[in-house]
Write a protein that binds this DNA or RNA. Structure first.
Lengths: 193, 193
DNA sequence: CCTACCGATCGGTAGG
DNA sequence: CCTACCGATCGGTAGG
């Protein structure tokens, strides 16, 4: 299977949690190994390097999000539908794998070249997808002639912000968060009329 | 003076830039020293430790922001005025010292106890100030009965998001950014009528 | 998956 | 602000 062996998935899972708690740089391969009750050297049978782990977390999330936004822009035709589904997908993907999402958003810059540039390219493609949604709204005379880049980045930081406070065991469910955020963003962009 | 000697301010300035570029953990005291053309050991005449540098950056920004939001809640009486001035202050403080702002927002968790807890307390006080603004709007029947905590955190991530793309040499000035963000947030929270 | 190990580098101190 | 230095720890490899 694509996700690798059981052991490999365990390594990724433990690493995500540690990278989230202490940051990538501060987490040591010794800590990861200890949580798995194996020797540090044994990790290297499953991953090429510490950065390899970060790489798989970051690109895994990036691919999920890109797939989702491409689907939105393929299927929906009006801005309202596009925005609603985009926010719903985005919140769903982040909350579904919160540790990975936090690492993806906060630790990607510790990737080294050439993967760093490849990652930045994927992120730009996502922003481009967001701009397409905003452009649809402008064409429909629903949105202000807002600077599309400004709008895309503002939407992104608004939805990504949930990772700092979302708690799976809390009473605010992903679907409700997505609904609130959609309303907030839609109203914020909407032309007054 | 409060900011310390010239040399100390140079150390903070160089550290802010390096912490922003590479993250706190990945930056070494040797790199900081090299940029100042001194030996690593010489840094310790001006700061107690590497963490001491991070401490001063994080608490410096926190104090500026707290002072500003307290002023807003003291002076302005209606939600529109409060929100407008809060966004303006917040964007102004972040953009005025962008490197420090980025470190403040992204690296504070590398503080160790007991300073870490003190920092978190300051951040909670700021969120409390934001909730006070939202409450004012609810009392005036301008805002939806939005969950105040959700609203405060969403506002925060929306305004903080600018640090990821703001460029001092760009054509979008802090005042314009603040105006756009204010409109976005105000409309997003506003009751439809 | 383990034992045994390595070169590099880390933050920081002593003493001037 | 420098010279000289230290104990600790890092990511990773060889070889089984």
């Amino acid at each position: 299977m694509l996700a690798g062996t059981d052991r490999k998935r365990e390594i990724l899972s433990v690493s995500q949690r540690l990278f989230k708690e202490k940051g990538y740089s501060t987490t040591t391969v010794r800590e990861i190994a200890r949580e798995l009750n194996i020797e540090p050297a044994s990790l290297y049978s499953h991953v090429h390097s510490k950065e390899d782990i970060l790489d798989q977390i970051c690109f895994g999330m990036a691919e999920k999000l890109l797939l989702a936004i491409d689907e939105v822009n393929d299927i929906y035709f009006d801005a309202e539908g596009k925005l609603r589904m985009m926010v719903d997908n985005h919140v769903g993907i982040l909350t579904d794998d919160l540790n990975a999402a936090i690492v993806f958003i906060k630790e990607w810059r510790h990737l080294s070249e050439p993967r760093l540039s490849e990652f930045v390219r994927l992120r730009k493609r996502y922003e481009q997808g967001l701009r397409e949604i905003i452009q649809t709204g402008i064409d429909e005379h629903k949105f202000n002639e807002i600077d599309k880049k400004f709008g895309a980045l503002t939407i992104l930081s608004t939805v990504n912000g949930i990772i700092d406070w979302y708690k799976p065991e809390g009473n605010l469910k992903p679907k409700e968060i997505a609904d609130s955020l959609y309303t907030f963003i839609w109203s914020g962009l909407r032309l007054d009329n």
